[in-house]
Design a protein around this nucleic acid. Structure first.
Lengths: 219, 219
DNA sequence: TATTATTTTTAGATTTGTCTAAATTTATTT
DNA sequence: AAATAAATTTAGACAAATCTAAAAATAATA
């Protein structure tokens, strides 16, 4: 089935929220979508009519299997386009999100399949997020939150959750990118901030808030 | 300035029509856009308000300089994407039009500039149509309609006007593509059909209607 | 040139996606 | 458990892009 741009945006957003909270509620989706709760309710009725979610008035909602597949289709398109923009067009990784946000709504299965092949069937996008395959299957990696990691072990940055421009600019400032090698030297109990050392850089301190958004693997 | 998808489609269509007829009228634009004359009138008011065209009720209309620049921007995007789809994603040239029709509405000057560079700043798209540069400048070629050409001189196919799937399929059947070498052997006065010989193919006959849509250069 | 035909425009309706304000339901606190 | 607060939904409005049907302007023709 085909969806409108607005439907796809809602589906994708519900998907991300329900991965964290299980059930999603109207207000948080409205906040995330920068829209009004009343508009969310309107859209929920449409998505329910299209049999994409479990939803009862006042009770919260979540995508069913069909809805999840639809969401993964959009995620796949988004991440493939991000990969294209960074790898082929040489965009900075912190600039591609808004453009991919438009490209993801172009509906042509053949286009996406060919793009995937052209890019070499990548498994992860430039932010380190996994790219679902055409059946919605997501590659898994053995990654861990930077704030939960053993001290003084060498690590590789494998993904970054929060993709706000501010966050990504900050990481750039610290010279942290995907694949960067680093080590946590010390954890300050007071505010849970971390002293880290990025390979070839002098040690620095990052807040718990930043650490929570950085995922790593042991080398 | 930025335009909606519908505005861009109308602008582009007016541009193509006024290249042939000078002034454009409501009915022909409606026919070309597969919409209703009343809808065209509505859109004309909007485009006039945005100062993109010369238009007086009941008198016909045409793009002014600002309108032409807007049209060429869309044409540029469309043809760059077509080039990408054929050259990089290996689509058949007769399948790319509808997808480029969607991609052309993504508005990011940086995206298009980078795409242009990535593709090697091509001057012609896969149908042989010239790609305007970012200032709206169109490369010129010395081409001629196949129906007006001297007999028994070697020619190269440089562009194809009518891009309907039927037309393109037919050319594929005759083994005519951009760059194909061919020669007109005979013109039948009765119906203006042509006997042509494509290099390495046996001679065949094409109608005047087809010939009128094929442009060539002398080798 | 008067009449008819064609083209174009207006007037008013429809659909989609959104909004505000008010009403309803559920949750939280005295 | 009653009162208050928060979340959610309904009702009704609006803008954009389209449509149909009817009116108005222009063009063609008898």
């Amino acid at each position: 089935m085909n969806f409108t741009t607005s439907e796809e945006n809602h589906i994708k957003c519900i998907y991300h929220l329900q991965q964290v909270t299980g059930l999603v509620n109207t207000n948080s989706l409205a906040a995330e979508m920068q829209t009004r709760p009343a508009s969310v309710t309107d859209m929920l009725k449409k998505l329910k009519a299209k049999k994409l979610l479990h939803y009862e008035r006042y009770k919260g909602f979540k995508l069913n299997e069909a809805g999840k597949k639809a969401a993964l289709d959009v995620v796949r398109k988004h991440r493939l386009w991000e990969f294209f923009l960074v790898e082929k067009l040489k965009f900075d990784w912190d600039k591609v999100h808004p453009i991919a946000e438009e490209l993801e709504h172009i509906n042509s299965a053949e286009l996406i399949q060919r793009l995937d092949n052209f890019l070499g069937n990548p498994s992860f996008d430039p932010h380190g997020d996994p790219i679902p395959d055409k059946h919605g299957k997501i590659p898994v990696i053995n990654q861990q939150n930077l704030s939960t990691v053993t001290l003084k072990k060498m690590l590789t940055v494998s993904s970054v959750t929060n993709q706000s421009v501010q966050m990504l600019e900050m990481l750039k400032h610290y010279n942290i990118t995907l694949g960067s090698q680093l080590m946590v030297l010390k954890k300050f109990e007071f505010d849970e901030s971390l002293e880290i050392k990025v390979l070839k850089q002098s040690p620095c301190i990052i807040s718990e808030q930043v650490a929570k958004n950085v995922f790593v693997q042991y080398v």
